[in-house]
């Protein structure tokens, strides 16, 4: 994630530690994947209660863009910054492969450089990515355009309801997603489908043709 951001933006990101109580001034806060705190109790549960998350919640409240990828998405749902929960994959196995993602809503900075309905490649690597929300919540997030990404037809790897792979908060400044766009941002990754997400999130709007 650090390498991806550095390459895409030309600036190395400032790092925050889980015990920090304040974040540096930022236009984008990223909670990367990585089984923080061993996923003890539930995936992301301990991380969501780490001191730094109070500062993340404050940043979200202030309108700062927040991106949680994989374990970062789990941390955002566990902290209540995003609705729903991520449960054990329906097939019970860890999935590590490439999936196809459909852009469900591009009226948002994070997805602004994609076409709505566009299908992109993206790797996934997780054990607890099965998105669940109760019927009322699901209806609300679907109705409010809070679904950012769906697994394209036939590629749902984990049993997520409505094939949900990523969601926004109601305000649209917080995005959580299970797939790893940072792992597909340069030709050496065999593709750059994930790059536009970061360019959009950072408003780097001059995109070279894919």
């Amino acid at each position: 994630m650090i390498a991806a951001i550095t390459k895409i933006s030309g600036h190395a990101p400032t790092l925050a530690w889980h015990t920090d109580t304040a974040l540096p001034d930022s236009e984008l806060v990223i909670i990367p994947g990585g089984f923080s705190h061993g996923d003890y109790l539930r995936a992301g549960a301990i991380a969501a209660r780490a001191p730094v998350m109070k500062a993340v919640a404050q940043a979200a409240e202030n309108g700062v863009r927040i991106l949680g990828v994989c374990n970062g998405f789990q941390t955002l749902t566990e902290s209540g910054l995003l609705p729903g929960a991520l449960m054990r994959n329906a097939g019970l196995t860890f999935v590590c492969k490439e999936v196809k993602l459909q852009i469900a809503n591009n009226q948002n900075p994070f997805t602004q450089l994609y076409q709505e309905g566009e299908i992109i490649r993206c790797p996934v690597a997780h054990h607890d990515g099965n998105y669940f929300a109760d019927a009322k919540t699901l209806e609300r997030i679907e109705g409010e355009g809070q679904v950012a990404f769906r697994y394209a037809e036939g590629s749902n790897p984990n049993g997520s309801l409505n094939d949900i792979a990523g969601i926004f908060n109601a305000r649209g400044n917080v995005l959580g997603m299970m797939p790893h766009p940072e792992n597909l941002v340069e030709p050496a990754h065999s593709g750059i489908d994930g790059k536009r997400l970061f360019q959009g999130a950072l408003d780097l709007l001059e995109v070279e043709p894919a």
Binding site: L41, R42, A45, R49, T77, E78, P83, G84, A85, M87, F132, A133, D134
Partner: peptide, 9 residues
Amino acid sequence: EKLLANTVI
């Protein structure tokens, strides 16, 4: 409420 259970699920 705060930690041991995730009351969403």
